[in-house]
Amino acid sequence: MVPPLALDIDGTLTTPTGRIDSRVFELLPSWEAPVVFATGKAFPYPVALAHFLGRDEHVVAENGGVTYVDGETTLLGDPDAAWAVVETFRERGGDIGWGDGDTVNRWRETEVAVSIDADEALLREVAAAAGDVEVVDTGYAYHVKSPDVSKGRALRTAAATLGIEPASFVAVGDSENDVSTFGVVGESYAVANADAAAREAADVVLEESYMDGTAGVLADLRARDASSRD
């Protein structure tokens, strides 16, 4: 059988312009093992992706702050501490960068995301002074979160609910928030556009970027499965 998957979304299932690559809708609906979407995005986004793919809603969201598997939701982290840092950041002249609507954080339950164009130095200074949060750069936003929350820890929770060993999973990702995932799965891949932390942590750094790299991994896993049956 093909292995279960732990897949990041942004930078991994997308095009360079940030759109979901159409091959996601060709390759993932028929994958014969569980797929966990592990992302820094707010809870509704990966749930919607799973829904429109016709897959079970197996989700790690908000960098591990939310785990949702088989109807069971687990929330970790301290959103109040994250918001306190953001409010201090604003008081000191910082701008989180999303405008009045801020749909980026509207449904976020365990952390706060700040625009990648924000004053990173000031944000990190305020977070360091608070002492009970950390700032993670995913390449798409700065995430203010509890330091004990991670995608890897959340994947362990998801795997236990599914009755699958974490080491059975294959993971694909592109940034430092995927490092903890790579540490708990049996096989990990960083797409070519990955940041230095993800590249260092992955078992394999792919030659192709974005969904090109991920599609290649899925093809190789299918070929491996077919060969094992011969």
Results as ranks from 00 to 15, higher is better:
V35Q: 04
A219R: 13
A118K: 11
R224I: 12
L7Q: 03
V185M: 02
L75P: 02
A171Y: 02
S188I: 07
E165H: 09
A84Y: 08
V149F: 01
V205I: 10
L221K: 04
A160V: 07
E165W: 07
G54A: 05
L221T: 01
N177V: 05
D230L: 11
W83V: 15
N193T: 11
E57Y: 03
E87R: 14
I164H: 06
E200R: 15
D56P: 10
V191K: 04
G163H: 05
A197N: 04
D225K: 13
A128Y: 08
A154L: 09
V170S: 02
D10N: 05
T181R: 03
V112T: 07
T157R: 06
V47F: 07
W107T: 13
P3A: 09
D56A: 13
Y45V: 15
S209T: 11
G94M: 06
A81V: 02
R90L: 15
E91F: 07
G65E: 00
G163Y: 06
L28D: 01
P34H: 13
E62S: 04
E125S: 15
P46M: 03
V144Q: 07
V112F: 06
E32A: 12
V191T: 11
E125M: 13
D220T: 11
Y45W: 14
S22R: 14
V135A: 10
A81N: 02
P34C: 13
D78C: 09
F52H: 13
R90Y: 12
V24I: 10
G97M: 08
V66A: 02
F52D: 14
E57V: 09
K145V: 11
V35F: 06
F182I: 03
E62W: 00
P46D: 02
R124A: 12
F37H: 08
A118M: 12
I9M: 01
W31P: 02
G94V: 05
V60Q: 03
G216V: 02
F37P: 02
L122Y: 12
R55H: 04
V217P: 00
A160W: 05
L7E: 03
P46C: 04
R92W: 11
V179C: 00
V2I: 15
A127Q: 08
A84G: 08
A192H: 11
P166L: 00
D148P: 01
N63P: 08
G216W: 00
V126Y: 10
F52G: 07
E111L: 12
T214N: 09
A84W: 08
T214M: 10
G94W: 05
L75T: 00
V191I: 10
V59Y: 03
V135S: 07
G131E: 06
A118H: 09
V179P: 00
G213E: 03
S146H: 00
T138Y: 07
W98I: 05
Y68M: 10
A201T: 03
S209V: 11
D212V: 10
A201R: 01
F89E: 04
A202I: 03
V185L: 01
S188N: 08
V2W: 15
A201S: 07
V104D: 01
P4M: 05
R19P: 06
A128W: 10
A159S: 06
D95H: 14
V86H: 08
R90H: 14
D100L: 14
D178K: 04
A171W: 00
R108A: 09
S30K: 12
